[in-house]
Structures are given as structure tokens and as C-alpha cells.
Design a protein around this nucleic acid. Sequence first.
DNA 1: CTGAACCGTATGCGTCATAAACAGTTGTGG
DNA 2: CCACAACTGTTTATGACGCATACGGTTCAG
Lengths: 271, 271
Amino acid sequence: MSRQGEDAQGAVAQDEGAPGSPPLPPGLDLLWGRRGRGQRGPKPGLSVDAIVASAVRLADAEGLDAVSMARVAEQLGFTTMSLYRHVSSKEELLQLMWNDSAQGAEDIVLTGDDWRSRLGTWAMIQREMIDRHPWITQMPMAAPPMAPNSLTFVERGLEAMDDTGLGDADKLRVIGLISSYTLSEARMAHDAARAARAAAAAADGEAMPVWTFEALLREVADEQAYPRLHRLAWSERIGDHPAGFDEQEGFRFGLDRILDGVEVLIKTAQP
Amino acid sequence: MSRQGEDAQGAVAQDEGAPGSPPLPPGLDLLWGRRGRGQRGPKPGLSVDAIVASAVRLADAEGLDAVSMARVAEQLGFTTMSLYRHVSSKEELLQLMWNDSAQGAEDIVLTGDDWRSRLGTWAMIQREMIDRHPWITQMPMAAPPMAPNSLTFVERGLEAMDDTGLGDADKLRVIGLISSYTLSEARMAHDAARAARAAAAAADGEAMPVWTFEALLREVADEQAYPRLHRLAWSERIGDHPAGFDEQEGFRFGLDRILDGVEVLIKTAQP
DNA sequence: CTGAACCGTATGCGTCATAAACAGTTGTGG
DNA sequence: CCACAACTGTTTATGACGCATACGGTTCAG
């Protein structure tokens, strides 16, 4: 009873790149325009772009966990399985979202006379991009981002160091270092914010105090066992927090330390 | 119909800390020994320690995703719901796992005459701890780690900078910077390893090439659009990789840059 | 010795990703 | 021109997950 021209069960047209070039990982082939589109059949009422846009909207509003195939489809007025005609898996959808979030990385221009100010604003731009789409920090990053937009952004970062005399390899490592730090700081900040939001939502009526880092530390950091932390927890306040706890300032501090370190590298490399 | 002495539906005895101290976030009360245990009833055949140990074993072997209440219980020979008598939610279990993974942080001793070598080995120890339990990098970290073991480890980090003349706040920021970087690098490394393992498993028979970063870059980085990346992708090889791609070396490089930056801070602060 | 407090179990709900088979629509080759 | 292949979205089903709820058995305090 089985038909002979059975559906290609995975759906989604296969790639058709130059012979000899093996298929790219999921999502990337599409991103780099290497996936064909047939002619026959009805006009699609659904498109990859629409799906990605819908998913991003969901993630922006409710976090990455809210992005399920079911909810994305529902938001578009289609059934869950219809998405699989355009996207081969959820993983691929996530890849596409990631690339989409880096939109705008193409047109950035780094002004500034010295590499340090250029690289500094490069990092701040990266941080702002993440802050605009905090769910990025929840993404499982199988590989370094390889989407066109991301690559452009990295290229800009390398460009910022053109006049440093550093080797290519070192430049790439510096980019990696800064990105690593930026992503990590953003992740912590947004995880904390998410947790605070969740706690506030859970303790709707009343009860359940919201714990800040400092408050917890004061509660728990015994003077005997943790003398230094104890001192920190009970130190003078600057503004709202004891010194050393503010996030904004914390990020900038770390970034400046890293740039100092890069400066040392540059100076020793080229005396 | 309804009993009056209904079960406390959440199970798990409530805390009984000093009056005036509100209940700690899930998991922490248990960690800091602030949760009571009743007397009546049968001797428990199950314990929090056993549950955590089982969960950690699972995570070590198959990653954090393999840790489900069902599988943990199964491994112990109990039913899924039995776990909830000892642990209030999966989130709490994860907290307990996190603390457990930091076991051994208590006894580390940082030898070395200068702050730099001490702080360096502190960072390397942290990295090794993560490498021993790679699932740590997959954990949703609501707040900075507040478990006893983690606090001890932070205290050791602060201690390493005792003779730097830095202010307490700056010391804490340095600790944050290094931890942030270490965690992020470890995360990328293990995500990549996981992905590679998954890809290898999926492409069991044959087909499906495994893409390395460099290979992908060569495939995709056009010379016109990405001249610097193109040059990097096709640069000389050092050992297995083109320069700048090795993970081990990459981590150490970044760490050294950061320590350079800290050194600058110390020197300018105390002339 | 009785009942409250405690232990582990059984059952079920809602949600998730996705496999498989199918029905409707359209361009194209004979 | 028209049958069929290629393409569209839909239906239905599967096995996992976290956890709420209700329950029967155990043990110790009064």
C-alpha cells in the first residue's frame, strides 16, 4: 500500500551547493543561501522569515522557554507541524533566531582614533545587542556563531585592531576573550533579572521576600568562616549597593581590566 | 470528604530558622542546615544525599538533560514522586547538585609567593572543577552561587589578593571577572564537545561530515566580505589548528591578559 | 492504643518535539 | 490537455517530561 514517491520524511528541500562541498550544519545552509526552492505546488502561506520573526517575538516577550513549536505556530495561525515544512528542527529554528538577533551588526561603524576606544565600543555594542534580546544568553551554542551577521561583526572587531601590530591569531584570541566575558556577564545579569521576575510573580499576594545578593550574604556569611566576604557584605553602601555589586559598573570594570591587559600585550609585542 | 490534617502539599518540612530571618530560597535553607526533620513516621529509605548523588552520576554520564526526576528515581529503585518528599522541586535538586560539585573547594590551599600565581592557579582550579562536572555550564544560574562550598571558594580567591593593596570592592570585582571568563570559556568548550559527540552519534553509519570551526570558516568566509577572517582561516597551521583556535591555549591566553590587566590596576592604585 | 505525622505510591494533567500518513494545490512533461 | 510529481499544510499518534493530588501503610508521642 505504500506509495512509491513517498514524502521525503524530513521535509525541507535538500541543499544543492557546488559539487564537492558537503552539506552545512542545520540552519547554516539556509542562512548562506544554499537551499533550493521548488516551483511546483501551492504558494506557501508560511515562510521561514515569518516563523523566525514570530519566534523572536515570543522569546523577547517571555524568554526562550516560551518558544515551542506549538506556540510559534499558534501565533501564526497554523498548526504545529506546518513549521516543519520550512524548518527542519527546532535546533535549526534557534540558529535562525540567533542570526536574526545579530541583525544590524552589518552596518556598525567604529569611530574612534585608537584601537582601545574602538574595541571598547565594539564590546559595548555587543552587550547592547544581547540586552535587546536577552534570550540569546539562554541559547545552547554548539559552535561559535557562523551566521553571516555574526561573522561580519567579528570582522569589525578584528578591523578595530588593525593598527595594533598584533598577529592575526592574537587578534582573534582577543575577540574571543572579550566576547566570552561580555556574554557571560550578560548571562548572569539576565538570569538574575529573570529569577527576580519569577520570584516576584510567584509571591504574588505577599510573603516570600526577594533576596538580593547582599542580603543573602549578610544572612549567611559567618564572620569566622568567611571574614573577607563578611566584611564586604557589611561594608559601606555606595548608592543602593555595597561596593562591588552593581552590574553596569561591574561590566565596565571588567572590560577596562581586559583592555588594560590587551594594551600590555600590544606594548610588549611591539617595543 | 477532605481530611483536616491534610498533607502539606509541597511535602518537605518547612524551615525553622531564628525568628525574624525569613525563609531562604529553595535549596539554600537545606544547604545551610536550616530545615527541620520530624521524628514520627517510618525511617526514610531515601535521603537527600542519595538523590543528589544519583543525579550527579547521571549528569556526569549523560549531561544535564538526562537528569529527570523519573530517571533519578529509577536509578535509585524508587518511584518518581518519592523524590518530592525530600526535595521540593527540580530546581532545588539542581541547586543541591551545584553545591555538591563544588565539593573540595573547602580544602584547597593556594601556594605561591605572589598574588599573580595564586590567582592564576585559583582560576585553573575553577576550570578543572567545571571540567570534572561539565553539566555545571548548562545550569540555569539564578543567582551567584551562595552555597557553603562556593562561598569558601570565593573567600579563597579574595585571600589570594590579600597583599595587593586593592580595596575589598575591587577584589570582589576581580573575582567576578575571572569567574565570568572561566565559566564562559568552559561553557563554549563543553558545548562544542557535546555537539561534536552528538553529531558523531547521529552520523553513525557514515555520511555527515563533522565540521570544525576552521573548516566551516574556509567554506563560508568569502575573501571580499571578510578579508581578515579569510586570512585567518587559511593561515599556517600550528599543530592541528590554524593559529588562534586551540581551546586550552585560548583559555590560558585570556587568563594571562586578564591578570595583566589586574596587575595594571594594582600598580596604579598603589604607586 | 490511638491518632497525628510521616513515608512512598498510583494516577493523571498539560506540555513538549517530532514521526507518519494524508488531502488539497499547482506547475510541467508527455 | 491532462496525469502525475512536487509541493503545501493537516491530522493523528508516540513517548517523554515536571508535578498536583489523592491515597494506603508505618511509626512514634500522648
